[in-house]
């Protein structure tokens, strides 16, 4: 019931606000598209996170390229670089298996954007990094990479 009420409220506010968006009265911040995927982001294990993200059963692919340092001295800032050569990649997500909450980021690409990101992660300990790509035809692909961490970046 509550759920329904929430949907109705959301639906009506979107309808009410939509004429304002084009008029410039509302800034694009109001347009932040997808709602934060709470279940996937707050999952505490890699298996739960993959399940919530609908990333289980992904096909391993060499067309997703992850570059990351083999050894990171400081887990507070580990720069990784992910690009997908899979045609029509719509989404890339980054997981760190051993982090307290494994899903780090999920990005949707549209228009002129290429499926590429460079991001800096906090890594709790030595872990496997996974990148998951979703393509326009609904298929899911995955690639892996190990990063050794000498000083963890979560407790600080």
């Amino acid at each position: 019931m509550l759920e329904l009420r929430r949907k109705l409220l959301k639906g009506s506010s979107a309808l009410l606000l939509s004429p304002l968006i084009g008029s410039g009265l509302l800034t694009p911040t109001a347009l932040l598209a997808a709602e934060w995927n709470r279940n996937a982001f707050t999952a505490r294990t890699i298996n739960d996170a993959l399940k919530a993200y609908a990333g289980t059963g992904a096909t391993e692919s060499r067309d997703i390229v992850i570059s990351a340092p083999e050894i990171a001295e400081n887990g507070a800032k580990v720069e990784i670089d992910i690009s997908s050569n899979l045609p029509n990649t719509r989404t890339l997500a980054v997981f760190a298996d051993k982090n307290p909450m494994p899903l780090c980021a999920s990005l949707d690409f549209s228009g002129a954007a290429l499926p590429y990101i460079r991001v800096q992660l906090k890594l709790a300990e030595t872990t496997r990094i996974r990148a998951i790509a979703k393509t326009a035809d609904g298929k899911t692909y995955i690639a892996f990479r190990e990063v050794k961490v000498t000083l963890g970046g979560c407790g600080g």
Binding site: V78, C104, L107, A113, Y116, R118
Partner: peptide, 21 residues
Amino acid sequence: PLIDGQLNTSISKNPLFAFKA
């Protein structure tokens, strides 16, 4: 829109991203 991102606490302080278009 080019990129819509959702993030967790595990992104470094003062997040720096690079993209291509």
